[in-house]
Every structure is written in C-alpha cells, then in structure tokens.
C-alpha cells in the first residue's frame, strides 16, 4: 500500500518536472533556443521522456481503476498499460540515442 502513497506523490513531482521541461521545450522549439546537443541536453531529454510517460500512464491507471470494477479486468488493463508504457520508454530511448 506504500506504493500508492509514492505514486500519488511522484505524480506531483513529475508534473512539476514536466512543467519546467515543457517551458524549456517550447522556448527552444519556437523561439530558436540553443541547439539540443551535448550530455546535459541528453540527460534533460531522458528525464523529460520518463516523466511524461510516468505521469501520463499513472494518470491513466488511476482513471482506469475508477471505471473498471472487476478485479480481473483491472489486472489485465494494468498489465496492458505497463507494457505499453515500457514499450514507449524503449522507443523513446532508442530515438534519443541518435
């Protein structure tokens, strides 16, 4: 049950990270900021990616619980969401490693 406490808290943390990241992202995209290269940018992109996937999928998981009532179905959906999130993370890392 500790897990839920952490999840809730981390949803807030990733939210803040995403907010900061997005601001920066938006700035570099549309106002010609610095070129996104180098180890710092790489680290930034990596954290940004993980936060986005965690935040999004954790949100979906929460919503799922409220509308899916059978325990078995909940488990199945949870599995699907986790697999999808992991797959996306893999793809993301692959892209970022260019």
């Amino acid at each position: 049950m500790r897990k839920e406490v952490f999840e809730w808290f981390f949803l807030r943390i990733t939210g803040v990270i995403l907010l900061a990241g997005l601001t920066l992202h938006f700035y570099t995209m549309h106002y010609n900021g610095p070129a996104q290269t180098g180890p710092y940018w790489r680290a930034f992109n990596f954290i940004f990616l993980l936060s986005a996937i965690y935040h999004g999928f954790n949100g979906l998981l929460g919503i799922m619980i409220e509308y899916v009532h059978s325990r078995a179905l909940q488990k199945i959906f949870e599995g699907v969401l986790i697999v999808t999130a992991l797959a996306l993370t893999g793809i993301g890392i692959y892209i970022l490693s260019v």
């Binding site: 793809i91 993301g92 892209i95």
Partner: peptide, 22 residues
Amino acid sequence: RISGVALTIYIFFHLYYLSSLR
C-alpha cells in the same frame, strides 16, 4: 481528466514524429 488522457495519447504521435529524425 480529458486533457490528461489526450496528452498521454499525444505521446504516441510525438514519438512517431521524433522517430523520423533517423
């Protein structure tokens, strides 16, 4: 809730777009 779900779905499109970088 609605924006959250939409944005999570958007991650797929965004990664697809970025994958074209290669």
